[in-house]
């Protein structure tokens, strides 16, 4: 049981989280945030293992992880 929360307004859409997620459950949203980026998001949270890889590599402290 794990949960990640993306603060989508801080996201710059760099995609580093997408590249390191072992479960490949992170993708970009279709909408733009206030900065003009398509923010990263998790669609199927049930598969999240709470490894925090996404948060560790995120340069912008977008992600909080709960486990």
């Amino acid at each position: 049981m794990a949960k990640v929360t993306f603060n989508e307004q801080k996201c710059k859409g760099c995609g580093l989280c997408v590249s390191v997620c072992p479960k490949k459950i992170i993708s970009f949203a279709d909408n733009l945030n206030a900065k003009g980026f398509k923010p990263a998001q998790v669609v199927n949270m049930d598969e999240c293992i709470g490894c925090a890889s996404c948060a560790i590599i995120c340069p912008d402290c977008v992600i909080e992880v709960e486990r």
């Binding site: 948060a55 909080e64 992880v65 709960e66 486990r67």
Partner: peptide, 16 residues
């Protein structure tokens, strides 16, 4: 569930 990862206090809560 407990938070296992969040912004550290010493990092300002601003967009870099």
């Amino acid at each position: 569930m407990a938070k296992v990862f969040e912004k550290p206090h010493a990092l300002s809560d601003v967009s870099m």
